[in-house]
Each structure stands twice: as C-alpha cells, then as structure tokens.
C-alpha cells in the first residue's frame, strides 16, 4: 500500500489576520502560517495505516513559507518519503492550483491512496481533495474519520462523519482520494530531538509546478475583516468584578438556584 499525504500551510488563526490596503487579499508578509489541521490528521492516518498493514507513506507539499520545518516534523513521525513542489510566489497556492499540480504528479508516483485534509480554512474557491479525485478519475470520500482495510473485493473502508458522531461505513475501491477530517487517533507528538535528527537525515525530493498561477474562476472584489458587530453586553472590570457580575446575572436569570 503506497499512500501519499498532501500537506498545506494555512494562516494561523491564533494570530491576527491583516488585509492589504487595497482589500484584495490577505497581507501575506504579515501572516503567520501553520500546518493545516486536517492535513496533519491525514498524515497521521497514513502513518497509522502503514503501521497496521505495512506499506509506504510519502508526503507532498508546496515549497512555501516554513514548510521545511513541517516536513522535518512529519519525517520524524515516520513518513518515508518527502516531496517538495517548487513554488516561487508570494502567496500560497490556491486549491485549484494544488489539485492541478497534483493531478500531474500523482500518476508518476505509483500511489494507491491519496489522503488530504477535507478542509482548509482558506478554501472557498474550490476544494483540493475532491477536485484532485475528479482530475484523476479516482473515487473520493470526504469528511472521513478513520480508514481501515477489509472491505469486500479488496476494497478499503472509510468512515465518513455525520452529525451526532454517527459514522457512515463506506467501502472504496483503490486507487482513491480520501478527504480526512480527523485521524483514528490524534496526531502523535514527536520530541524536538527527533525532529532535529530528521532534519539532518531527511532528503527532499523535488517536483516542478507549472509556472503560471491558475486564476480563480470567479472575480474577487473585496477581502475584509467582518465589521465588529458585537451583540453581547460586555462585562468589564477586574476578574473578580466580572465574575461577581456574571454570578448575579445567572441568579437573576434563574440558572443558579
């Protein structure tokens, strides 16, 4: 089983988002990036599958921002092969670019399964996973919370999440693309010493991407922060004062007896 996991950097929402003066995009110079959470889970699921059933896990990422640090960390977790796609633009690739580039790369890699986060919080014009599946003409299941071997006729089983923690058991023929929401287990922790060791030993393979950026299929008119519409009555003062005020409110509303 050869698994390819796709990882992307996304704006870190813990930090404030800054928009350009022209309001046409995020100000990428002032944006902190982090590994897309569901991609992190996709890698974890790939490693779990390898540990359980054997096989080989490759990770592919665009060469943007501090991706090397992320790739060292993933190598330390147990990824076998790391592929970096060249990327010389100031902004990260959009979903269509990711799908377009990977649809050219994946057929060269002898892959049985592609796993990718089923969402990224900047995706709104396209979604990379399903659109990659369509480009490859491979089956796709998204919003997946765990994968296992053991379907009928050599298929694999993906567990698709529905409301109320209900799972739909979906059997999928390989090769396939799966959009991972969460792995069967939370992403593992790796100590810094192992990441440093991986940084010394891991060798990146490289792949090219088309030179031109794929233009979004709709016209972006304005990018902006939502107007501050706070409907809440804000409680202010010292911690003790706001706590006391809240207790009084809870009493008045009959929540506390």
């Amino acid at each position: 089983m050869n698994i390819l996991a796709v990882v992307r950097l996304v704006p870190d929402l813990v930090e404030p988002l800054v928009v350009t003066a022209e309001e046409d995009n995020l100000n990428w110079d002032q944006t902190a990036f982090t590994l897309n959470e569901s991609d992190d889970h996709a890698v974890e699921e790939a490693i779990l599958l390898k540990e359980k059933y054997g096989g080989h896990v490759s990770v592919v990422a665009f060469d943007f921002g501090d991706i090397d640090q992320v790739l060292y960390m993933l190598a330390a977790k147990g990824v076998d092969r790391v592929i970096k796609i060249s990327w010389s633009h100031d902004e990260p690739p959009n979903s269509l670019e990711v799908a377009r580039t990977l649809s050219r790369l994946v057929p060269k890699l002898n892959v049985d399964l592609v796993v990718i986060g089923c969402q990224s919080h900047t995706e709104f014009l396209g979604m990379a996973g399903p659109q990659l599946a369509v480009a490859l003409n491979w089956p796709y299941v998204g919003v997946v919370r765990g994968v296992q071997e053991g379907g009928t006729a050599g298929r694999w089983t993906a567990f698709k999440e529905y409301p109320g923690a209900v799972l739909a058991q979906m059997e999928v023929s390989l090769p396939a693309v799966l959009g991972i929401l969460t792995a069967s287990q939370p992403p593992r922790y790796v100590p810094v010493s192992r990441i440093r060791a991986a940084a010394q030993s891991v060798r990146f393979e490289t792949a090219d991407t088309p030179a031109e950026i794929e233009e979004p299929p709709v016209k972006i008119q304005r990018v902006y922060l939502p107007p501050a519409v706070t409907h809440a009555e804000m409680l202010t003062g010292s911690e003790a004062e706001v706590a006391q005020r809240l207790v009084d409110i809870l009493l008045a509303r009959g929540v506390l007896k």
Partner: peptide
C-alpha cells in the same frame, strides 16, 4: 467554479455576487 462557505448571494442588474466567510469566520470575501 465552486464558491464555498457562502453566506449571502445577491443578484441585481444581472450581476451575481456572493459573500464568503472563511478563516473560521474571521475573514469575508466578496
């Protein structure tokens, strides 16, 4: 094209516009 996370669609004078809320609700895009 796919336009996801769309919270409003406006259609006026034969122009179709949408507003999308992304980044966990912290950013709007028209």
């Amino acid at each position: 094209p796919l336009v996801a996370n769309c919270q409003v669609i406006q259609h006026a004078e034969d122009v179709l516009k949408a507003t999308c809320r992304i980044c966990a609700g912290k950013l709007l895009v028209d």
